[in-house]
Design a protein around this nucleic acid. Structure first.
Lengths: 150, 150
DNA sequence: TCATGTTTGATTGTGTACAATTAAATTTTG
DNA sequence: CAAAATTTAATTGTACACAATCAAACATGA
């Protein structure tokens, strides 16, 4: 057991409770974990799911465009995309008009995942058991903050 | 270049913008990245910093208690704590009253880090350039949601 | 045009995250 | 008490994240 009363006074700004960073960090991981069992049925990880959200919407995106939208760099995306290529869910090819760019495209199996993922947002929402108004308010607030910082 | 108008209608619930998960995930990483250059001066990573926040407050905690507070399991904490032990910042010893538990304690060098970390919260706050009221509101909201889900 | 600078991905290395399994110690129960 | 169940860390394996570096392709300008 540990002592509940520390021997020295503690700077309240250095307490976990009073930081913005920690609840953000922990909540993000908890929500990812809430997705995990549902994504497992699709054989997807959470970051892979985010890539597919973008590909289902745009059909084709360069690695650069994916990275800009997801705020991830090629050190993260390249191996992730190679795994999706190995499963024959996406294609990776150089843009003939700019050989520096790699265009990611959807294969039929990757396109087909969309139908199975359709119910996911509602399932997650049910799982979080959160009032719709709170959900919307928080989403908007986070989105605003994100675009301000990015 | 990619087409801006997708060839098929898209389920709006499957768009990145309309998810709660993505802004949470991206914002969490952005804030971690804002800490990084400041933490680098202390030779700390962000999760290591969170461990020290708890240790500065409680002096001693078991791995289990750290995991409960940070929502991290031993597969994450054990190697992290071993790295801190190698730097002679913390101690790891079995609880003689329950040999299953490992008690993490602060060494002088680890305690001394606190003085250098004191200015960090304010530096981060300045860096985020966010109104105090927004900061507090978001922090409270996230904290509430977190304790509800955990 | 060709030397310089920029853009884009890939690679490497370190450090999380976490599921799944194992093993040891403790607690509970019949 | 002894068998069974639980708790606690550690281990293993997979998959991010990201800093730093590299190399190729493109853009720019004197």
């Amino acid at each position: 057991m540990t002592h509940t009363i520390p021997s020295t006074a503690v700077n309240p700004l250095l307490q976990l409770e009073n930081q913005l960073c920690f609840p953000l960090y922990a909540l993000s991981r908890m929500i990812t974990k809430a997705y995990q069992p549902l994504l497992q049925e699709l054989d997807l990880t959470y970051p892979q799911y985010l890539v597919f959200l973008l590909l289902w919407e745009h059909q084709e995106l360069t690695v650069k465009e994916l990275g800009d939208k997801l705020l991830l760099d090629s050190g993260t995306l390249t191996p992730l995309l190679k795994r999706l290529e190995q499963k024959h869910w996406i294609t990776r090819r150089r843009d003939p008009r700019d050989e520096r760019s790699v265009i990611i495209g959807l294969l039929p199996a990757g396109q087909a995942l969309q139908a199975r993922a359709c119910q996911l947002p509602e399932q997650i929402f049910a799982k979080l058991n959160m009032p719709q108004a709170d959900f919307e308010a928080l989403r908007t607030q986070l989105h605003t903050l994100l675009t301000q910082l990015a």
